[in-house]
Amino acid sequence: MKEPFIRDFDPIDTFVTPWATAADAAWNGQIVLMGFLVCLSCGLVGAFIVVRRLALMGDAISHGILPGLALAFIVMQSRALLPMFFGACLAGLLCSACIEWLQRKSILKPDAALGLTFTSFFALGVLLISLHGSNAHIDPDCLLYGEIGLIPLAENLSIAGFDIGSRPLISMLAITILVILALTIFYRQLLVSSFDLTLAKTLGLRINLIHFGLMLLLALTIVSAFEAVGVILVVSMLIFPSVTAAFFFTRMPVILLCSIPLSVIYSCGGFFLARWLDCSIAGAMVVVAFLCFVCAWVIGSQGGPLQRAPHLRRVVAES
């Protein structure tokens, strides 16, 4: 029999079966937790990226990390984690620095400078991988779309003999904590330098240092997240939370806090949606994020269609 286009919705299979046994619950719990951490750290960093009008810088960095991954592999001749991690971060930072340099020093339009730099980086990475990486086991699919479903399969980390859990999960947790700490400690510096560079300078802030710090945080987040959600979908995780929250709230701290509930919705919603439709979890998470965005746009108090059309609002109120 032909598979139906959309699978029938089976609430038991979707909501209950994943948690039926302890092993299942542990496995799926790790997936949902990973999704949550990815959404949270990306959402928090992304909020500042978006207000600085750098939304596409996330895209650029996430593609720019590829040559770093490939070079680290070729030089080390292994998939050792730390070299790959730092290679990727370095390449990402280099990519963003190139973009900024081009934007400042050449006559290129900013968007053109961005577009050609990160695609060149990406192409270089593709070339390196196809030249030397046949045994790299760098799976292009995994790179582009990520495979959050395989996170529980990753090797476990242990410190002093104690097994502390799956490696990607632990590193994502560490990065999330780093992001939260950095953003709370340097909140004012980031806020002022994002809003008004001149004021930041008058107040004696090192604006270039702050910018570099934010780019570093962005690169770290992307590099730890791309394994789970891939270099393409990670961009939506950067942008969706803050723009969704912005339909309801107009102050930065509240928008930042909103990424917590939104991350829960994205990761759980994405997991159950993928479970129901038997599709990519990362993809489903982004679809959920998109649906939330549309709902927020419709019902949000900041500039949605309901707000702009008073008669519509009345219709809704009456019904």
């Binding site: 207000v51 002022v192 809003f195 107009t250 102050r251 930065m252």
Partner: peptide, 19 residues
Amino acid sequence: VDWDFPVSVLDVVLMGRYN
């Protein structure tokens, strides 16, 4: 000035106090 920035009037004035 970026007028869409998510800050309130009081936030902006408080920025002047950060130092």
